[in-house]
């Protein structure tokens, strides 16, 4: 991970320079609208990519900016899913309030978990997040009276979005809804990490011992970002439950935690766009490869992951940044 070297001596100017929008960023978000015009039959896939991207973004907030590696982040995704799904099942199928309540529940549990998490680092931290995730998965399996167990939650019926747009077979509503939520959360995250709070988080990531010494409350910061990240993961889970109107134990699985971690590393952690790009690359590749070769597609995914590590260290974005720097260095 790169160590920050502020270009300007004045901190607020540095922060302002960081917060300015780059042309490529604007192009990216405009490109996100392209599926509506060019790939109209891929909107369901696009919505699931946007949801996964949001989930990866939530992991990036803790991994990329606070150095917390989690192998159990699906716990919060799943909490969001079940909250939204259960609300709809019990008769409150309104999506927006469902989304907010799901985020709140996931955030609340995230805060409770952060009290434990903040005390550990390294392998112990990874294994504790893994263990808590698996415990929740088993608990959901046991509580089949509530969750529907292995068959999944039955009877999730969503009301139309804003009382007007129903979740259609083509996925127009699903993608519009997921993309808007992704964009809004992204905007908020972008502000957050370029704030003084975001800077001190990166300080903790780079040197967890020194930050308290200069007066930054490490543990409090970690608890805060972990809670925010859990709420965002819960939002993503709720979106999936609402747009697909299905919830199953799989939303809490180790596989989901591991997949999102792979996507984030693939795209490049600590760059906000890394998780989004990773989700796009991974899921588009998976969709195309498994279309051609339903039985062995993951062979090619594996080759792709190995190739990225070998040729683009620190993920696709990290590797591209490194290549660009190398290129500039050569021409200059």
């Amino acid at each position: 991970m790169t160590v920050l070297a502020p270009a300007s001596a004045e901190p607020h100017r540095y922060l302002q320079a960081q917060i300015r929008w780059h042309g490529l960023e604007i192009a990216f978000w405009i490109a996100a609208l392209l599926p509506f015009l060019l790939f109209k039959t891929y909107l369901v896939l696009a919505s699931q990519i946007a949801i996964t991207a949001l989930f990866a973004l939530s992991l990036d907030l803790i991994l990329g900016y606070a150095g917390i590696v989690s192998l159990g982040h699906a716990a919060f995704f799943g909490l969001g899913s079940y909250t939204a799904g259960l609300l709809a099942k019990l008769g409150w199928g309104e999506p927006l309030t469902g989304l907010v309540i799901a985020a709140a529940v996931a955030g609340l549990v995230g805060y409770a978990a952060s009290l434990v998490i903040a005390r550990f680092r390294h392998l112990a931290l990874i294994m504790i997040t893994l263990g808590m995730g698996l415990l929740l998965h088993e608990a959901a399996n046991s509580a089949s009276w509530l969750t529907g167990g292995a068959d999944g939650l039955q009877g999730v019926r969503m009301w139309p979005l804003l009382g007007y747009f129903r979740f259609d077979l083509y996925g127009v509503t699903a993608y519009t809804y997921s993309l808007i939520v992704l964009f809004l959360v992204f905007l908020a995250s972008r502000r957050l990490i370029h704030s003084p709070f975001g800077l001190s988080l990166r300080g903790i990531r780079e040197n967890p011992v020194r930050m308290p010494a200069i007066g930054a409350p490490s543990s409090a910061h970690i608890r805060k970002i972990y809670t925010i990240s859990a709420a965002v993961a819960g939002t993503a889970g709720a979106l999936l439950a609402q747009t697909t109107q299905t919830v199953s134990l799989e939303v809490l699985s180790f596989q989901r935690s591991a997949d999102v971690l792979v996507m984030l590393i693939l795209g490049g952690a600590g760059r906000l766009y890394g998780g989004i790009l990773g989700a796009i690359i991974y899921l588009v590749a998976r969709d195309q490869l498994s279309g051609f070769n339903p039985q062995y597609w993951y062979f090619w995914i594996g080759i792709m992951l190995i190739a990225v590590v070998m040729f683009l260290p620190n993920g696709v974005l990290g590797g591209l940044a490194w290549l660009r720097a190398a290129w500039r260095g050569k021409t200059a």
Binding site: M1, V69, A258, L261, V262, I265, L266, A269, Q295, Y296, Y298, F299, I301, G302, I303, M304, L305, I306, V308, V309, M310, P313, N314, G315
Partner: peptide, 28 residues
Amino acid sequence: RRLYRASDLDQCLLTIGIVFVSVASAAY
């Protein structure tokens, strides 16, 4: 060998890639 000094995350990604390849090869 080329990743002994790389980050944990890159090591993760490499070895997960190897798992994918090995599972597909075994199935094949």
